[in-house]
Amino acid sequence: MDETGKELVLALYDYQEKSPREVTMKKGDILTLLNSTNKDWWKVEVKITVNGKTYERQGFVPAAYVKKL
């Protein structure tokens, strides 16, 4: 869990989004888990830094590609 009590997951593999509802992740990324009720796709939040500014983006990743921490 992070400092706000949200559950975290670890990306076990790289994943490139294939639709606007998904998010890209790299092996080793730590993501915030938002919803894991679907056994195949989990909703996560990723933080992306571009030119020194951090953005948060929500989307789905394959559940088999992440592990709860």
Rank of each mutant, 00 (worst) to 15 (best):
K6I: 12
E7H: 13
S36G: 11
T54W: 11
S19N: 13
Y55N: 07
V50T: 10
K6H: 13
Y15R: 02
M1V: 15
N35Y: 06
A63P: 04
L33W: 01
R21M: 13
N51G: 13
N35L: 08
V66K: 00
E56S: 15
T49W: 12
T54Y: 09
K27C: 06
K53R: 11
T32M: 10
Q58A: 11
V9P: 00
N38H: 11
Y15A: 01
E17V: 05
P62R: 03
L12N: 02
K18S: 10
I30D: 00
K27W: 03
G28K: 02
Q58M: 08
V9T: 02
N38S: 11
E7P: 10
G52H: 08
K53W: 13
N51M: 11
G59R: 02
P62L: 03
K26M: 09
R57K: 13
K27F: 04
V61W: 00
I30N: 02
T54S: 12
L8G: 03
K39E: 09
A11R: 01
V61R: 00
D2C: 14
V9I: 07
M25E: 00
L8T: 08
T24N: 06
P62S: 02
G28Q: 02
W41Q: 02
P20Q: 10
E7C: 13
K67M: 12
L33V: 06
L31Q: 01
D14N: 08
V9M: 04
K39V: 10
D29H: 05
K26A: 08
T54D: 10
M25A: 02
A63K: 06
N38R: 09
D2Q: 10
V61A: 03
W42K: 01
L12S: 02
T54R: 09
D14T: 05
K18Y: 04
S36L: 04
F60I: 06
K18T: 13
T24I: 02
L10W: 06
W42M: 03
G28P: 00
W41V: 03
P62A: 02
V23Q: 02
T4C: 13
A11C: 10
D29V: 03
K43E: 14
A63D: 01
D29M: 10
E3K: 08
E17W: 05
T37V: 09
K43A: 08
K68I: 14
P20Y: 08
A63R: 10
V66R: 00
K68G: 04
A63E: 03
Q16I: 14
L8M: 11
N35T: 06
K68S: 07
L8S: 07
N38M: 08
L69V: 11
K26W: 11
K47E: 10
V9S: 02
L69A: 04
Y15D: 00
G28I: 00
N35V: 07
G28A: 02
K53Q: 14
L12H: 02
K67V: 15
Y65V: 05
G5P: 14
P20S: 11
V9H: 02
K43H: 09
W42I: 04
D2P: 12
K67F: 08
K26I: 07
Y13S: 08
D29C: 05
D40A: 12
E3S: 11
L31G: 06
N51K: 09
M25Y: 01
K43V: 14
L10N: 02
E3N: 12
N38T: 06
P62W: 03
Y65D: 02
V9N: 00
R57E: 04
W41A: 02
T37F: 09
Q58I: 11
K27L: 04
I30W: 04
I48N: 07
W42P: 01
T4N: 15
L34N: 02
P62D: 01
E3H: 09
D2V: 11
Y13F: 13
A11V: 09
E22V: 04
I30R: 05
V66H: 00
T49K: 11
K6L: 13
V23T: 04
A63W: 01
K27M: 07
I30P: 01
Y15S: 01
Y13I: 08
V23D: 00
I30K: 05
V66L: 15
L69F: 09
T49L: 12
E56R: 15
L34D: 01
T49A: 09
A64N: 14
M25W: 01
K53P: 04
V44Y: 00
A64T: 12
V50M: 13
G28Y: 04
D2K: 06
I48E: 08
D40E: 12
A63Y: 02
K47G: 07
N35E: 15
K68T: 07
S19P: 04
E17K: 14
D29E: 09
L12Y: 03
T24E: 03
K39T: 11
K6T: 12
R21I: 13
S19Y: 06
E45M: 12
V23L: 12
G28W: 05
T54G: 07
Y55Q: 11
I48V: 14
P20A: 12
S36K: 07
E45K: 11
T24F: 04
T37E: 15
Y55E: 10
K6E: 09
E22L: 04
W41Y: 07
E22C: 06
Y13K: 14
N38G: 10
E45L: 12
S36M: 08
V9A: 09
N38V: 04
V9C: 10
E45V: 13
M25P: 00
D14G: 06
V66C: 12
A63S: 14
E17A: 15
S19V: 04
T4F: 14
F60A: 02
G52A: 06
L69C: 10
V46M: 09
S19A: 08
K39D: 13
L33G: 00
G28M: 02
L12C: 07
L69K: 04
A11F: 02
R21W: 15
L10R: 09
K27V: 06
L31V: 06
V46Q: 15
L10F: 08
R21A: 12
F60H: 05
L31R: 00
V23R: 01
L33Y: 01
E22I: 04
V23F: 07
